[in-house]
Every structure is written in C-alpha cells, then in structure tokens.
Design a protein around this nucleic acid. Structure first.
Length: 386
RNA sequence: AGGCCUGUAGCUCAAUUUGGAAGAGCACCGGACUCCAAAUCCGGCGGUUGGGGGUUCAAAUCCCUCCAGGCCUGCCA
C-alpha cells in the first residue's frame, strides 16, 4: 500500500434508469472524486425496501438499470468499488450494534422522518378540504333553510366562517399517524445509513443538503462508539454537492415522481416528444413576443447542451425574434447527439446483463474485505470477539 | 388472545345510517386554443366495490366466513 488515500462512501437507492439531473449532479461529481479518493459506491437496496417492501418484483432490474447509468457516466469499476448493500451482511451486523447507541426519541426527532410524515399528512388534508367545504355548505344550508331568507352574501360569509372554524379544529388534531406510514425499518433508516458509512471508515460523504441531519446522526454515533469502546471510526465530513439544478420538462425540479425527466441515453423518439411538449415561458404567447429565458427549461437545456450559442439564443428570445418551436428543435438536435454514446453503452450492456453482475461481484469482494476488517476491529473493541 | 375501525378507478376519497342505474377530485390520454408548451374549455380511458357464501325481485350497503391493514387492551417468555 502506498500513501493512504481518504475514503469516500456514497450511494443511491436503486430506482431504475437515471436522468440528466443525476448525470450533471451526483454522477459527474462521483466520476471526478474517483481519482483522488478511495471511492465506494453503494447500491442501497435495503434502503429502498424501507418504503418499497410491498413491491419488490422490479428491484433486480432497477439495480441493473441504475448501474448501467453509473457506468456510462464514467464510474469505473477499476477505480471504484461498486457493490450491492444487501450482499455485504456486515452492514446489517453493524446496524444492529449501532441501534443500541441511539435513543428512540433521537430517531423520532429526525427531520426527514417528520417531513415524510407531514407530506403524507398534508396530502390527506388537501383532499379533506373538499369534504370540509361540503360540511360547511350543509351547515349553512340548515341554518337558513327555516326562518327568514337572507341574502346570498351573508350566507357566503357565514359559510366562510364555518369553514375556517372547521379547518382550525381539524388542523389542531396534529397527532401523527406513524402507524400507517412508518415501519421499524424506516425509523432505523439513518442508523443503517450510519453503518453504511462508518463500516468503510469513510472520511468524506458527498451528500445533498437534505441529508445533513442524517450525517449528523452518523457523526454522533461514531463519537459515541469511539468514546464507549475506543477509537475505531473517523468522524466523517460532509461535502455538499451544489450544482445548478436541471429543471424537468415541466419547469419543476427534475424527478421521477413528477414524470418530467430526460433519461440518460433516452431514445430519439421519446426525447423528441419530451422536448417538443415541454413547458416554456407562459408569457410568450405569440412567436414574436419577448420571452423570459431564465424561467424556461428549454433555455436551461441550451445552456447545458448548446453552451456556445446560449448567449445569442438568450438575446434573440428576449428580443422576440426567436420562436419556441425553433428553439426546441435546435436543442433537441444537440441533446440527441449528446445522448448517442450513452445509448451505445446502454445497448451494449443491456444485451449482457450478466456483465453488470460480474462487475458487482468484483465490487462486493472488495467491499467485503474492508467491512470484515472493520467488524473484527469493532468486535474486538466492544469485547464481543469471542 | 380480546375489543374497535378500515378495505370502492393508478392516488385521495364519496355513496353504507335508510338496500333501488357505482361517482367526484387529482393523475393519464385525446381534441379545441397556442409558433410549441402552460393556463383555460370540451371529451375519453379507467371498477371482480379485498375473496367466497347467504338473505332479497334487487347488495358497495344487511348476515356469515376467510384474507389483508390499522388502533387499543392484554397474554406468554
């Protein structure tokens, strides 16, 4: 072994094919880090199970599709360790040991968990709003059905008040329905994540801002372990990956759940359809209306795929001498050409999916070496190495 | 183990009280309008009402049973 290189762990839940948001975000970042660090990239299938435990049929294919995109984005099996979480049982062992070091209240305080539950909650409230509206309507109707007739205005006002009272009552009931939503595994998610990171004794973890609270827990666990049993783990540092967000075809953040993605290696036909039906500046109704390129996803794509012309395009759009159809056609050509090598790579690997699993097998082997070593150290320090 | 609640379109839910043509919103697809898209307006797709049995002229609705999920109270260790 030559000079000691710092260790990086990162990973993703296998969600199938990735999109250009991933490509210009996390994947580009990973590809660069490979040459400076010992990089471990984890296919986090156990993490995926915490919310997808009922629907596991496509997991294998989703792993294959994701790893294909990793490889075409320049993640190299020679430089990095690409492994599947569930193949390395040591993760589970360390998770169990760590689970003793974390209090229940600490996990319930987890902002990610709270956010997740709140999101489900507001979804429910939104649909309940219509029901509340109906109740308010009925009450108002009853009040006025007998006795004198009042003006519609007064009726409307009373309904408004009844509605706001009802909403107040319902929103006061803030008891969180953990039961239906959160299982044991989901609660322990950040503890498993801590095990993932620390078992490789990673120094650096590239993450998004939303993952910071999770890494904080990882650091707490590492410190607690080191204090109780002796130094084993480095305290990992976060590296925030901040890149310009790639907007989706509807102008919102690109995300699979919004159904607004452009896939890595998207085929020509689908790409054309997606680009031509993409959202543009709603203020630009007529072809020669002045546009607002900064809020137009198509212009964002020009900046990425057609950078050399983007200044000119911006000017023409603002001046109103450029139509959206022309703009879309041009950017489509650029993206289409850009995708070609990715398509070839995907085509090649899709034919031989067992090749993916060979690569994973190699990665697993290397990952296991490291995790075995860590676990021996952990058991020894904990004095449970009997 | 006992008590209570829930299961209806891809999602969230109405219709169950009082048996009488299975519905809405969102999502999706198509059309109109747009240079395109969005917004808006039209239209369409979508169902073994968790499964099975029974009562009835007629069952999402009532009865029995099984399955699945949730809440509460216990039991064993």
């Amino acid at each position: 072994m030559g000079k000691e290189r710092k260790v990086i762990l990162s990973g993703n839940r296998p969600t199938g094919r990735l999109h250009i948001g991933h490509l210009f975000g996390v994947l580009g970042n990973w590809a660069q880090l490979q040459s400076e660090y010992d990089t471990y990239f984890e296919v986090a299938d156990w993490h995926a199970l915490t919310t997808r435990y009922q629907d596991t049929a496509s997991m294998k294919k989703d792993i294959e599709d994701m790893v294909i995109d990793w490889l075409s984005a320049g993640i190299s099996p020679e430089k990095s360790v690409i492994f599947v979480q569930s193949h390395i049982k040591e993760h589970a062992e360390l998770h169990i040991l760590f689970s003793m070091l974390v209090s229940l209240s600490r996990l319930l305080r987890n902002p990610t968990l709270k956010e997740y539950v709140a999101e489900k909650q507001t979804l429910k409230l939104k649909t309940e709003k219509k029901t509340l509206n109906k109740i308010a309507e009925n009450i108002t109707q009853k009040v006025f059905s007998e006795g004198e007739k009042r003006e519609e205005v007064l009726k409307g006002k009373i309904k408004e008040h009844v509605l706001s009272e009802l909403q107040g009552i319902f929103s006061q009931d803030t008891e969180i329905p953990y039961g239906e939503i959160v299982n044991y595994g989901f609660l322990g998610y950040p503890v498993l994540q801590a095990a993932d990171i620390l078992i490789y004794r990673a120094h650096v973890v590239p993450i998004g801002k939303d993952q910071l609270p999770h890494l904080e827990l990882t650091r707490e666990i590492a410190r607690r372990f080191n204090f109780l049993y002796g130094e084993v783990f480095p305290i990992p540092e976060p590296v925030l990956n901040e890149f310009a967000k790639v907007p989706g075809t509807d102008g919102r953040k690109m995300s699979k759940s919004y159904n607004n993605t452009i896939l890595i290696g998207e085929d020509t036909k689908d790409l054309k359809k997606k680009i031509m039906s993409a959202y543009t500046d709603p203020k630009k109704i007529k072809k020669n209306d002045p546009g607002h390129p900064d809020t137009c996803p198509i212009f964002h794509y020009h900046m990425i795929f057609n950078k050399e012309n983007s200044d000119m395009i911006k000017e023409e759009c603002i001046k109103g001498i450029r139509g959206c159809v022309q703009c879309k056609k041009e950017v489509f050509e650029k993206i289409d050409a850009f995708m070609e090598p990715y398509r070839e790579k995907r085509y090649e690997l899709e034919e031989k999916r067992e090749l993916i699993w060979d690569i994973i097998k190699e990665g697993d082997k290397k990952a296991r070496e490291k995790t075995k070593e860590t676990m021996e150290l952990v058991r020894e320090k904990m004095k449970i190495d009997y």
